[in-house]
């Protein structure tokens, strides 16, 4: 049987990868993908904990259903916000509007 720590290592490496993507990327879509990867890591950890719990209940799986639905909803909302961002700043580069503002102030 696979030990719980194996699942946790994979989940935490995914969370780290997602954090790396969210911090270093300028493209809004890549930042969203980073957030999704982090969410997947969290889901794996939750399901693993739920299954390895000695007192079995479906709480973990019910929670995952909730989390996956929230992820779908926040992705839709994030895409709408990205559309607004592009309409307002004519770019999806997260760094550029700051630069434009800085130029304006200069």
């Amino acid at each position: 049987m696979i030990p719980l720590s194996w699942y946790l290592v994979v989940a935490f490496v995914m969370i780290g990868l997602g954090a790396y993507g969210m911090v270093t990327k300028r493209n809004l879509i890549r930042i969203l993908i980073g957030a999704e990867i982090m969410g997947n890591g969290v889901n794996i950890a939750l399901v693993a904990f739920s299954l390895y719990n000695p007192v079995f209940s479906f709480t973990g799986q019910g929670l995952i259903i909730l989390v996956i639905s929230v992820t779908a909803a926040h992705t839709a909302l994030a895409l709408v916000l990205m559309l607004m961002y592009q309409t307002r700043y004519s770019t999806v580069d997260l760094g550029e509007p700051v630069t434009v503002e800085a130029r304006k102030s200069d």
């Binding site: 879509i29 779908a72 992705t75 990205m82 559309l83």
Partner: peptide, 13 residues
């Protein structure tokens, strides 16, 4: 699929 639509709607991405 939603993100692909997003990429299509955001050509600057």
């Amino acid at each position: 699929a939603l993100i692909i639509f997003g990429v299509l709607l955001l050509p600057r991405a």
